[in-house]
Amino acid sequence: MARMIKCVKLKKEAEGLMVPPLPGPKGQWIFENVSQQAWTEWQAHQTRLINEKHLNLLVPETRKYLMEQMDKYFSGEAIDTAEGYVPEDKKS
C-alpha cells in the first residue's frame, strides 16, 4: 500500500515519496511533507530552470539558488520561471 502524506504543495492527502530525495534534515522534511506528484512537478520545473537559464550545477551559488527556489515552490511563494519555456499544450 502507498504511503500517504498531507502534501504542503497540493494541500491534500497524496501518495508520499518512497525515500527522502535529499540527505539530511531538508530531505527528511520533503519526505514527510511533499507528495510524489509535487516532487515530480518540482523536478520538471527545476529542469526547465537549469536548461533555459543555462545553470551550471558545479557552481555553489547555482545550487543555493535552486534550493531557494525549491523552498519557495513548496511554500507557495512566487518562483522564477524559465523565460523561453512554452508548455506543450500552448504550442500551435
Rank of each mutant, 00 (worst) to 15 (best):
P21G: 12
E13C: 03
Q28I: 08
L57H: 11
E88M: 14
L58T: 12
Q43P: 00
M4A: 12
V59L: 12
L49Y: 10
M70G: 09
E61T: 14
P25C: 11
L66E: 00
V59R: 13
A2D: 09
Q28K: 10
W42N: 01
V8F: 09
T62Y: 06
Q36V: 04
K11Y: 00
M70N: 08
I5E: 01
P87H: 12
G27E: 04
K12H: 02
K9R: 10
E88V: 15
Q43A: 11
I50A: 06
I50K: 06
A82K: 08
K6F: 12
E77I: 02
I30G: 01
A78V: 08
K64R: 14
E13A: 09
H45Y: 02
A78F: 05
I79V: 13
P23I: 08
Q43H: 11
A2K: 11
I30R: 01
A2G: 13
W29K: 09
I5D: 01
P23C: 02
E88P: 10
P60S: 13
T40A: 05
Y65P: 00
L49H: 05
G84L: 07
P20H: 04
D89N: 11
Q28A: 07
A14P: 02
Y85D: 07
N33F: 04
S92D: 15
S35F: 03
K72W: 10
V86E: 13
S75Q: 11
D89Y: 12
V8M: 07
Q37F: 10
G84E: 07
K12W: 00
L58V: 06
F31I: 09
S92V: 14
M67W: 01
Q36F: 15
G16Q: 08
G27T: 08
I50E: 02
N33Q: 04
L55S: 11
L49V: 02
L55A: 14
T62D: 02
H45P: 00
F31N: 05
E52S: 13
K91V: 11
W29R: 14
I5H: 06
A82G: 13
D89A: 11
V8G: 08
M1E: 05
C7T: 05
R3T: 09
A82I: 01
V86H: 09
K91A: 13
P20S: 03
E15F: 09
M18N: 13
E15W: 04
M67R: 06
V86A: 14
E41M: 05
E83T: 10
P23L: 01
Q36K: 15
Y73E: 01
E77S: 08
E83W: 03
L66V: 04
D89L: 10
P87S: 10
K91H: 15
M18I: 13
T81H: 11
I50H: 06
Y85S: 07
V34W: 01
A38G: 12
K12Y: 01
F31G: 06
K64N: 08
Q46K: 15
